[in-house]
């Protein structure tokens, strides 16, 4: 049923950084609730810009973007945190805090939405166990492998139970074994109902997939 409800909609969106640098051009795209989408394209094709527009790290030059029927391009700066709480973001470079343990790195997501204490602690432990890091709560990011760090980043993104997960090249630095682990976690999150946009340039990931694949080239969606 949820497959028919639109959760994200890009309407004629253009993002131009300067005169000769158009990252996205007149892009329109609808994403239904519960979809798992592979956003593919070469480096510089506009994948990261598209994701950044969704969590308003960038604003479009033209066009409108709707998230759950709200035009986020018209949001005031004070409303942006509320949008971001609906979205879990997994970055290619993990963006973990080196001076905090992995427990604290995940806890911070709950703290910003006002959840603390035992309840928050239990939730963090549960999610870290789910991604296979239940025994490494007190480790610091630098004590973990690349794949483990990426799993911490995923745990941080999903601990707030977001409706949308944006993953920007989350397997870019991982070997095939670790990549499959990450895909499996994403599959599970999708099965729980999260809408996932998975940006990658690794063709192997979507070769034989039944998921929708959106290919970007020079800021446009290929038919």
């Amino acid at each position: 049923m949820s497959q028919d409800i639109l959760i994200i909609s890009f309407k004629n969106v253009t993002k131009q950084f300067d005169k000769d640098n158009i990252a996205l051009e007149d892009l329109s795209l609808d994403i239904k609730k519960g979809e798992f989408i592979f956003l593919v394209g070469k480096s510089g094709s506009g994948k990261t810009t598209l994701l950044k527009l969704l969590y308003l790290a960038e604003k479009p030059t033209k066009g409108n973007i709707f998230v759950e029927e709200t035009d986020i391009t018209k949001m005031k700066s004070g409303e942006i945190p509320l949008l971001r709480r609906k979205i879990g973001i997994v970055f290619q470079d993990f963006k973990l805090l080196s001076k905090k343990t992995i427990f604290e790195n995940v806890l911070i997501s709950l703290e910003v939405i006002g959840i603390e204490g035992d309840k928050a602690g239990e939730r963090v432990k549960k999610i870290l166990s789910a991604v296979g890091l239940g025994a490494k709560l007190d480790k610091y990011p630098e004590q973990l492998s690349g794949g483990e760090q990426q799993r911490v980043a995923i745990a941080r993104a999903v601990v707030i139970r977001p409706q949308i997960i944006l993953a920007d090249e989350p397997t870019g630095n991982l070997d095939w074994g670790r990549t499959r682990e990450i895909i499996a976690i994403m599959d599970e999150l999708n099965a729980w109902g999260a809408t996932i946009i998975f940006a990658t340039h690794n063709e192997r990931l979507f070769e034989n997939t039944h998921r929708r694949v959106i290919t970007l080239e020079n800021g446009k969606i290929l038919p």
């Binding site: 969590y55 790290a57 004070g78 945190p81 509320l82 949008l83 971001r84 709480r85 973001i89 963006k95 805090l97 905090k100 911070i108 997501s109 910003v112 939405i113 941080r156 993104a157 707030i160």
Partner: peptide, 11 residues
């Protein structure tokens, strides 16, 4: 930390 907090929805 401030940059990350902003990205994950801190006011």
């Amino acid at each position: 930390e401030v940059e990350i907090m902003r990205l994950i929805g801190a006011t």
